[in-house]
Design a binder for these strands. Structure first.
Lengths: 255, 255
DNA sequence: TCTGTCCCTTTGTCCGACAAAGTTAGAGCG
DNA sequence: CGCTCTAACTTTGTCGGACAAAGGGACAGA
């Protein structure tokens, strides 16, 4: 006969974790606002009554989570976690889980279509000028696969931004980061890949400007299908995203 | 006349960061596989030639990122980052960025519809039995808003799982975690909310079983619109997700 | 087979220390 | 008076060593 649960598990956490939790709570509850200074390590030593080493371990945890960071003079302050940094954590996780390009493709089809729909509906003039600026730069580097791939990645970030939906922006980012390296490979390997990519971007901007949802969705689909066809010339969609791709993502995160 | 760039920028990072980066690289490159033991702190001290405090700070960084963890005996080993833990970081970020429920709703409409489409297409018998099991539990607690909200959250996780698309699974999770607390409030406030929720789940399972995509999409939309109607009875969609909701997410993360 | 004990290892925490880099206050100068 | 330069002072990153608590393993005894 199993024992009736007399006791709840005791909350026994290491001190550094408690320090991190306490500071996190203050930030997430809004009592410490982004930009507000956290004290110096010595201050925290006094406040929490633990050793500086312990404080420092707690700080590392929060720093990695993006909740606090150090300014130019290395003083601590709360800050808003940055999307790209968080997304690169997710990308890394997807790589480790060995997701396939098919999963990436399918999810992106959904997410990028949703982005363009939002952009068509709500893009501002500023969004449009950012996009046209990106297009101009893309046209200038259409012969350079590495640069073009970078422009392409930025283009889609800008589309998502134009959707004014930050949840969507964040949701699409991890998958997008894993796409990025393959775009370069495809543009390198497929002769008319570059021009087609730029043409698709042009049509997408046009659709956003005309608030033509159908066209936006259509050209997003085509754009992604182009990617897929290009990719299938060099590998199977059912291959898992490989570890080596992460080198790109790692470099991107540090930037 | 500007100087020709004689020197590359030196990579100047604190030692603890270099330790973390070095270990991360080995894991992400696959040379250390999930489950493999990392040495003891003393081993790492010897290998990197730095102080144990420095090693420990590096370890905290990786631990927070979910790349390594400690087993029952607190020994270090590499591990696969867990979706829910990563997603809660994102949820936290979304709260701090003060996203609105409208953004959450719109993104979820896209993501949950995509999930059900995948589930309809690819759900296995095991997925279905998990879902029906969840349904049974939901029916049992239809009068208890807190428990029902928990079941609802799990239901949608199971649907996403049934889509066999881990990218989608991961992408929907942050938004879903922010939904969860409101579901409880809505079911509490709206009399027929509980039964409607359970009925929707029943229809969704049915659609998956019959591989009826139209029905799946339809009922997902209805289910979300129900949430929206319920929510608008207690607050505006344009309100930002508030800090207090995070307490739920925090509790969930620890679990 | 199970249990209690002893020993060794490992982790979590603490203390004190120091160099390097940043900050602040004050002296010196125009 | 306002500006620059220098000399304290502070803070961070790193180091060395220390110790208690908890875990793991081996071993004896019931």
């Amino acid at each position: 006969m199993p024992l009736a649960p007399l006791f709840r598990p005791i909350d026994v956490a290491p001190a550094y974790q408690k320090v991190a939790d306490a500071i996190e709570r203050e930030i997430v509850n809004g009592r410490i606002k982004p930009g507000d200074p956290i004290g110096t390590e010595h201050d925290l030593v006094r406040q929490f009554g633990v050793n500086r080493s312990t404080i420092r371990e707690g700080i590392r945890v929060l720093e990695e989570g993006g909740l606090i960071s150090r300014d130019s003079s290395r003083r601590l302050h709360a800050c808003l976690p940055r999307y790209t940094k968080l997304a690169s954590r997710l990308s890394r996780a997807l790589v480790l889980h060995e997701v396939t390009f098919r999963e990436l493709y399918e999810a992106s089809m959904t997410l990028e279509v949703a982005s363009i729909e939002g952009a068509v509906e709500r893009a501002t003039e500023e969004n449009l000028s950012e996009l046209t600026d990106n297009l101009a730069r893309s046209e200038a580097v259409v012969g350079d696969p590495a640069m073009l791939a970078e422009c392409d990645a930025e283009f889609h970030v800008l589309v998502a931004k134009a959707s004014q939906n930050r949840v969507l922006q964040l949701a699409r980012e991890p998958a997008a980061q894993l796409f990025y390296p393959t775009t370069e490979m495809i543009v390198t390997g497929v002769a008319e890949g570059g021009p087609r990519l730029v043409a698709a971007h042009r049509h997408l901007i046009d659709a956003i400007r005309r608030r033509d949802r159908e066209a936006g969705v259509l050209w997003t689909r085509r754009h992604l299908q182009d990617w897929r066809r290009g990719f299938e010339k060099i590998a199977s969609l059912d291959r898992s995203v490989e570890h080596m791709y992460m080198e790109h993502a790692q470099a991107a995160r540090r930037r």
